[in-house]
Amino acid sequence: MSAPAPDRQPEGRRALLDATAALVAEQGVRGLSPRAVARRAGTTAALVYYHFGSPAGLVSAALHHANEQAPSVTRLPGPPAGRHGRDALVDALEAEFDDDPRVRSLNAIWNEVGALAAFEPALRDDLRAVTDAWKATVAAAIRRGVADGSVAPDVDADEAAELLTGAVDGLSQRWLAGALTADEARVALRPLLDALVPAG
């Protein structure tokens, strides 16, 4: 694989991934094609194939993109100085429920690939990789909370992360479907946060 110009390639690739996420949010993975993505991004299908190789490669890349850009991941590299780890965790998980079209479309990719994996084992490795990465990010945030005293010391960070990310996934599905508002989803997450990651 030759390295494209470093200052242009990531931006072009990112625009294609944003276009993919927006299309999936509108109509799902069904009907997603390199040509449709190219049209949406104002470029050529050849460029889509260049970056992603195949329609399956596009779905896989979009899923990893959705994970890297997810509010609960981007907000958790480390709490700003002076803030408690637990507050940062709560803010980050609640930020997943946001009607901003970009956040919605990132959630829609997860939602689609998560459901699709039941029928397409080929997607499982990708789904497992992003789910594990997300759980690890959340678990690390819980441990920071334990370290700064904002989270109770006896919390099992890995288990709490598995449960909380599962809850965000399940509530996200309802929110995306219009069965819950973003606010209702955040409110429903609260008692779980309080129970699984009690304040220290």
Binding site: L163, G166, Q173
Partner: peptide, 17 residues
């Protein structure tokens, strides 16, 4: 919250995770 959590985990079970 509990039903949402269970359904989120059920999806992971269905997906083989």
């Amino acid at each position: 919250g509990l039903v949402g959590l269970a359904d989120g985990l059920v999806e992971r079970w269905l997906g083989g995770l």
